[in-house]
Amino acid sequence: MIIDIQLASFFTAAALIVLGLFAALFLDNLIKKVIGLAFIGDGVNLFLVTLGFKPGGIVYIFLPGMSADTFAQSASYPLPYAMVLTSIVIGASTLAVMLGIIIMLYKKHGTISSKKILDD
């Protein structure tokens, strides 16, 4: 059985988001929470990439000798890819700041349990 790759990708994205929300809500370890939050961002990025997918499409580079009509009809949509790159960079910086704060909190409290640090 051949699964539609785009559909499968959408389901993976949804699973990542739900998993991330679950981790953010139920896990106590701050690092695990951060991993869960990174999953949410990754799921959304995967969703964006999948949006740009075109079955049987070509790379969106206008090669010499290609007719404009063929290009316009079969090139995949470049905008989502450009957006995902920016979104990944933003996500990485957020992640770095989060981990940095956790290091500071660990030095202060000696634990990374969310219940002990963030519960007041």
């Binding site: 929300l21 953010a24 809500l25 969310s114 219940k115 963030l118 519960d119 007041d120």
Partner: peptide, 13 residues
Amino acid sequence: QSDSFNSMIFYVL
């Protein structure tokens, strides 16, 4: 409406 993170994230979700 305390500052407890767990209750905050619960209400957010």
